[in-house]
């Protein structure tokens, strides 16, 4: 009998980090306000009491320093888990992430592995002020040497954080902040699948919707709406944005012939751009309609009173479903 417990996503990440810290004393957790406070979203709550201030500690408010010192610690054999407090605060660390962290294994011809996890609460929907609601994942997916993932539910959150910490490569771990409080059952005994594989969360024969992170719930809502109209939507949780599990999407599109890709980020030069291009190559003779992308707009993330208009919702997905079915 499996050992399961109901947890919110934030608590599941916390439990996963705790397990990793228990299993490997080289795992360190640091970032802004992660220690006594437990992070602004309380994702690291309680870890200080259990592991002490040599394993989890507050960093100065210096994101480049957080990532730069994480690199040095990894060179020494540690497995740093660094928190960037909000998506919009990651850019001061951009150089250390894309020019240093991502390239050091390659530059050193394998002398160094870089088992660093950078946790980033990301995305909108919480009514926040500027720079607290962004979706910067495409920048990092574009960079060779990085791995980029995002869980959408508590079970994945619990397991994917542990898999990310075990990875020998740097992993950008994007946490869907507006879903932190979403509860789900967590199987504490067994990981559901490898880190960089996609999952089909709902089967359907008419249209495939591929998405990740906070938009997975939205896609499932759209599928529910569509079902009431007699349309069967297949929902794929991509889980990993670098690498992308194209095989999983291809298998689905070959059955449905129609694909919608959605995320909160603007669609111009985005994860959905890559999926649309690749699926056009791989499924050309199976597609009944062009691949449609549904995302935020290519504007600075708007003020909170406008974010409902910015973020794709189930109705916007249904509009796209109608469009792909019209071909």
């Amino acid at each position: 009998m499996s050992n399961s417990v109901e947890l919110a996503i934030a608590k599941a990440i916390n439990a996963g980090m705790r397990k990793s810290m228990q299993e490997d004393e080289k795992v360190l957790v640091f970032g802004e306000d992660v220690a006594q406070l437990g992070g602004v979203f309380r994702v690291t709550e309680g870890l200080l009491d259990e592991f002490g201030d040599k394993r989890i500690f507050n960093s100065p408010i210096a994101e480049s320093g957080i990532v730069g010192t994480a690199i040095g610690l990894a060179m020494r054999g540690f497995r740093p888990v660094a928190e960037i407090q909000f998506d919009g605060f990651i850019y001061p660390a951009f150089n250390q992430i894309v020019s240093q962290l991502a390239k050091l294994t390659n530059r050193s011809e394998g002398s160094f592995q870089m088992p660093v996890v950078i946790r980033v609460p990301y995305g909108g929907g919480i009514g926040a002020v500027e720079h607290h609601s962004e979706s910067p994942e495409a920048y990092f997916a574009h960079t060779a040497g990085l791995r980029v993932v995002s869980p959408s539910n508590a079970n994945d959150a619990y397991w994917m954080i542990q898999q990310a910490i075990q990875s020998k490569d740097p992993v950008m771990f994007f946490e869907p902040k507006r879903r932190y409080w979403q509860k789900g059952m967590v199987n504490l005994d067994q990981a559901p699948q490898p880190l960089h594989s996609a999952a089909t969360l709902r089967q359907g024969k008419d249209v495939t919707i591929a998405t990740y992170g906070p938009m997975v719930v939205t896609a499932l809502q759209a599928a529910e709406l569509a079902a009431s109209e007699g349309i069967n939507i297949e929902v794929i949780d991509m889980r990993s944005m670098s690498p992308i599990d194209f095989g999983h999407i291809v298998e689905s599109v070959k059955r449905t012939g129609r694909l919608i890709v959605t995320h909160e980020a603007g669609t111009f030069v985005s994860i959905s751009s890559e999926v649309a291009a690749k699926i056009a190559e791989l499924c050309f003779y199976h597609l009944e309609a062009p691949v449609i992308r549904v995302g935020g707009f290519d504007v600075p993330y708007p003020a909170a009173k406008l974010e409902e208009l910015y973020l794709p919702d189930a109705d916007r997905l249904m509009e796209a479903v109608d469009r792909v079915l019209a071909y």
Binding site: K54, A70, I71, G72, R76, G77, F78, Q100
Partner: peptide, 23 residues
């Protein structure tokens, strides 16, 4: 360690490494 061409980046790597020695 390897040469660092983007100026100053290596100082943070050194500092992280030295933090590790403390730990």
């Amino acid at each position: 360690h390897l040469y660092a061409i983007v100026l100053g980046t290596q100082a943070l790597h050194a500092t992280g490494y030295a933090m590790g020695l403390n730990f």
